[in-house]
């Protein structure tokens, strides 16, 4: 089942001198339930903009983004925000944990925007999630007291605590050493498998990209279809 589909998506911005700059150019991409997709590309190739499109953060200049079959532009701004909170989880390169908040508070934060039982039981749910990523003994630690790998595990727990259908990972191992990066990816995949979430990873690292089942390359805003594994 399709979670998100990009149809001929282009994104153009104006430069200070008024000249247009095309960041994405006619991108077609579809992500299905349980999918493992990797997107590689050089700096400035449009990877982050593509991620923002997939995350319903940015809107295309032309083309259509369909989320669960519905055009994203049919949602109000607040509706898109709420949908993003419920269905999409983000993992960032720089972890982006909230400073001076404990690991538990960080993981519980997305549940503040839930309106169901999860809101009232957010601490218990966040505790379980942290135990699931092996940080049950670091609940009260603030980011300053955690290693890079541990911080990314907290970020993964936070991204998955609302059980999203789509996980968007932007260079998830970019700030970690090779070994820690591998461990973090294994964890991310395991937790995604448990919730049957689709995982889209944007990375420079061919080893990380190779872990996905479908591979794409982004070059000057154009996406090339299904790069065979090993050819990046």
């Amino acid at each position: 089942m399709s979670i998100i589909r990009l149809e001929q998506v282009s994104r153009t911005v104006s430069l200070p001198d008024g000249a247009p700059l095309t960041i994405l150019d006619g991108v077609d991409l579809e992500v299905f339930e349980g999918d493992r997709v990797s997107i590689v590309g050089r700096s400035g190739s449009g990877k982050s903009t593509l991620l923002n499109m997939l995350g319903l953060i940015d809107s295309p200049t032309t083309g259509e983004v369909l989320f669960e079959g519905l055009p994203a532009r049919s949602f109000s701004s607040a509706g898109r925000d709420r949908l993003r909170g419920r269905r999409i989880g983000f993992v960032f390169q720089q972890f982006n944990l909230l400073a001076r908040r404990t690991a538990l508070e960080n993981v519980a934060t997305p549940l503040l925007y839930d309106s169901g039982v999860a809101f009232w039981r957010r601490r218990a749910i966040a505790t379980r999630m942290l135990e699931n990523v092996g940080l049950g003994d670091r609940l009260g630690s603030t980011p300053e007291r955690l290693s890079g790998g541990e911080q990314q595990r907290v970020a993964i727990a936070r991204a998955l605590v609302r059980r999203p259908r789509l996980i968007l990972a932007d260079e998830p191992t970019g700030a970690l050493d090779l070994e820690t990066g591998g461990t973090v990816m294994e964890l991310l995949e395991r937790v995604a498998n448990e919730t049957d979430a689709a995982l889209v990873t944007i990375t420079h690292d061919p080893n990380i990209a190779a872990r996905a089942s479908r591979h794409y390359r982004l070059d000057a805003g154009r996406i090339s279809d299904r790069v065979p594994a090993g050819r990046y």
């Binding site: 995350g55 953060i57 701004s77 607040a78 925000d81 709420r82 949908l83 993003r84 909170g85 419920r86 999409i88 983000f90 960032f92 982006n96 909230l98 400073a99 934060t109 997305p110 503040l112 925007y113 936070r158 609302r162």
Partner: peptide, 16 residues
């Protein structure tokens, strides 16, 4: 600003 941006990715609406 970064924290606010991160919260928005978790589903915080502008009103919130």
């Amino acid at each position: 600003i970064r924290e606010i941006g991160v919260r928005r990715t978790f589903g915080a609406t502008a009103g919130r």
